[in-house]
Design a protein around this nucleic acid. Structure first.
Lengths: 347, 347
DNA sequence: CGCCGTCATGTTTACGTAAACATGCTGTCA
DNA sequence: TGACAGCATGTTTACGTAAACATGACGGCG
């Protein structure tokens, strides 16, 4: 009854239980409460018990704003991203959150719903005011370069999915190597060449996969068919599939992600083309469902958990060293997972 | 050169730029800086310009810990969840983050990697110390009831995916109605009865879908086949599909989510059963890929964005009213999306 | 012409915590 | 036995911000 602060209309926001309250009840100074609260030595056990009892009775919980103010840090890492919808992003964020929690850090999410210059700029501006010790940016970094948008100076930062390794500390999966493995696998099976359904043109991940695809074909002296442009969605993969199902005969396709590969599978199925006997399909990501597509999808596995883990490691390193991140790119290996959607061409 | 604080080894963490620094440079008091910073009236424009210039020169950014301490709130909402891997959770979190950002609130993620009592307890304990004004819990709430685990008193909270509506403020999709629509659709097509692949037994969402399935069959006077137990994964759906492909003849299956439905599709395909002509399949969730399964999946659409939106609304309402949430359940409608995986039974 | 209201700006204080320093008591050793 | 080390605990202070209150100058009106 006495803690009716919340209901007072028009009144100031009533304080929650503070150290002083606990101290008064326990009959000690607030500094002793602080010592008990932080497990410092030098408090005799009888006193400690009194304090703990008082804490329990009042339901004391430390005020982290005051702590943060005192210590000059928040034990929080900010994560800026466009979307949680993609498998990759949500898995990466999950890994970041888990590893950060293990180190005593919380995660603050700063979503950017529409990737306009203004919104990105706004996010970074807010970022500076936000209660975070460091930032992990999961996005196409080139958006940062095209305008006045830039990371606030003096903020520890790690970037995912970008080629900004010359200016920032970057963690990414080895997209190029994964794409190479995918295309090489198809060539090794005996396909004359390999078609490609790309990701969005603004995406660096998509760009790198397409570059590697082109490079492998060139190195092998194979003809390079025109790329089909997708946007990561199954729908765009389906549309590409309808095109590829027509002559000139395509026997192998490398899709820049698994969802577009799914769209391809449906389009080929509708057109009466058998995968893998008429056309081989390789995806990218290895989403959990890929093994249960019809047929099970050969794809490039990305270890998002590891990406998240390394992001946290790097960012904590920066915080602890008190220095900005060394520019450079940290690549997590990718590997091809061969399933039922690829085979030697007919004939 | 003079701001070399970060590099001093062993030294105290150097302060960043504070209001006092800006005030000194601008030749005003820190209170005037505060007024400019917060856009208060009563600062003559020439003074304001001076202050703004000083802010720019020093790269001043407000310290949110001090702000939070002053105001007694953090403008942050905590989100406790088990996993971001499921479509539903990641979409809900994304919507929460977006709507919260629009209201000036940030989102702090508190993941629980393994749902043991200890970990849940730990999360809630940390919660109390965390810099949040309210909490949204996305998880199977019954884990909270089985032991000593409970939400810290005095914390504003909204729960998702739970039947705790008698004690907490709950937002959820209308699982029961969605399941009813799915089963009724299959009966309307002329199927004699409908089989069901469940979610994990610990899941309330799964339980409610199964209950509704049973209820519709009973009301229609149809035989209720034994449930097949799944765990949301495509793999478990595949295993169930292999069982269902054997006699006694099953002509219609309702899977408790789309991934398990995907597993069913593959199992039936492998066994030479045609979907929908031999067997009809309905899923639940309406993940973006579902429209591109082979065949396109009939499924129950859940509006996760709306769930996230309402969570934020409710939680802000609690914060602003300064009161605990009214217990009660807020249901977001679900709707059946009919695609190609359902048809009338043969014969 | 003088009083007072208005307005821009400065000063004081409190938010909750914890480091640094101060106090006072106990026991030990020269 | 007296000075001092060691230890439990208390007091002071600072972290950065902003509300509340104080100050002082200027102008309008009786």
């Amino acid at each position: 009854m006495e803690r009716g602060g919340s209901g007072v209309p028009g009144g100031r926001r009533k304080q929650r239980v503070s150290m002083a309250d606990v101290a008064k009840l326990a009959g000690v100074s607030s500094q002793t409460v602080s010592r008990v609260s932080n497990g410092h030595p030098g408090v005799i056990s009888s006193t400690r018990e009194q304090v703990l009892a008082a804490m329990r009775e009042l339901g004391y919980r430390p005020n982290s704003a005051a702590r943060a103010l005192r210590y000059g840090q928040f034990n929080t890492i900010g994560v800026i991203l466009f979307s949680l919808s993609s498998t990759g992003n949500s898995r990466t964020v999950e890994a970041i959150a888990t590893h950060a929690a293990a180190e005593g850090y919380a995660i603050t999410l700063i979503p950017i719903d529409v990737p306009t210059q203004d919104n990105v700029l706004g996010a970074f501006t807010r970022m500076g005011e936000l209660a975070v010790d460091a930032v992990i940016v999961i996005m196409e970094i080139h958006l940062l370069d095209t305008g006045t948008v830039q990371l606030p100076p003096g903020v520890h930062v790690v970037v995912v999915d970008s080629d900004a390794g010359d200016r920032h500390s970057v963690v990414d999966t080895d997209q190029a190597d994964g794409a190479r493995q995918a295309v090489q696998h198809l060539l090794d099976l005996g396909h004359r060449t390999v078609w490609h359904v790309t990701g969005p043109q603004a995406s660096f991940a998509g760009q790198r996969r397409a570059q590697a695809w082109r490079a492998v074909l060139r190195e092998a002296g194979r003809p390079v068919p025109p790329a089909l442009y997708g946007d990561w969605s199954a729908e765009s993969g389906y549309a590409a599939g309808l095109v590829l199902a027509e002559p000139p005969d395509c026997t192998a396709v490398f899709a820049a992600n698994d969802q577009m590969a799914l769209g391809l599978l449906r389009a080929f199925h509708e057109r009466g083309l058998s995968v893998p006997y008429d056309v081989s399909v390789v995806g990218f990501d290895d989403i959990p469902d890929a093994a249960y597509f019809v047929p099970p999808l050969t794809t490039v596995h990305q270890d998002f958990a590891e990406v998240g883990h390394r992001c946290v490691q790097k960012v904590l390193q920066q915080i602890r060293a008190g220095e900005g991140g060394r520019p450079g790119t940290d690549l997590v290996p990718t590997r091809l997972v061969v399933r039922g959607s690829t085979a030697a061409p007919r004939g």
